[in-house]
Design a protein around this nucleic acid. Structure first.
Lengths: 111, 111
DNA sequence: AATATATATCGTAAATATACGATAAAGGAA
DNA sequence: TTCCTTTATCGTATATTTACGATATATATT
């Protein structure tokens, strides 16, 4: 049980879902906001602000990185994370399309 | 361990995360799309289209309902689900704000 | 009343996510 | 070289999600 059926959906829906998943934890939203405002960042600063252990923050950053929303140059003890604007732009536009496409149908309410 | 730290983040970030979470599975994105195009729907039609068992689809619908994105009038064996446009509109606008607010900072790339 | 149909819920198994402390790794400072 | 600081990774516990089959429930049909 709990087979992974995700792959049986369209690539587009999978990608949107993966993007949404990356943003599905308040810690990761907070991290993205911080990265966006600083536009150059050290993980340590994030750890100080968030109510989470350093290892947990590192894990969240890894997830954002895996999702492609963040890129990091980790050289030695001082690693620098920042928003992958290109990917973020793409995904947010994709979401915008979905939203507006859905809203176009919102004419008659059914229930 | 695995304490729930989510509540220690801002209400706004929690709400955005909850919305993102609702959309974080391709099945739920697919369901929302179907509901949007039909604008009046029976669960059964969804089950026929998706590669999932009836109980699983019902579960996904419940999650969408709990997140407030969908409302359902379930009378007897024939239940009708549809998009809660008011809530959806609110959340998607909120996300739009987040996106555009973040993008405003995208002037200089750091890494 | 009995049956059929559609949907929800229950029970459960497996996968994934969340969180932490401990430890490793890697570069800078003494 | 040795120590310090910073970040990543490992191990692990718990919570949550995902999925299914079986069953319950509730209306419509016969």
């Amino acid at each position: 049980m709990a087979l992974n059926k995700k792959e049986e959906f369209s690539r587009k829906d999978q990608d949107l879902a993966a993007f949404a998943k990356a943003m599905s934890h308040p810690a990761r939203i907070a991290i993205l906001k911080i990265l966006a405002t600083r536009n150059e960042c050290i993980c340590g600063e994030i750890v100080e602000v968030l109510p989470l252990a350093q290892s947990t923050v590192s894990q969240h950053l890894k997830e954002l990185k895996n999702a492609g929303l963040v890129k990091g140059e980790t050289d030695g003890p001082r690693s620098c994370y920042c928003i992958n604007w290109k990917a973020f732009e793409k995904f947010s536009a994709e979401f915008g399309f979905l939203f507006s496409h859905m809203k176009l149908q919102n004419e008659k309410a059914c229930c």
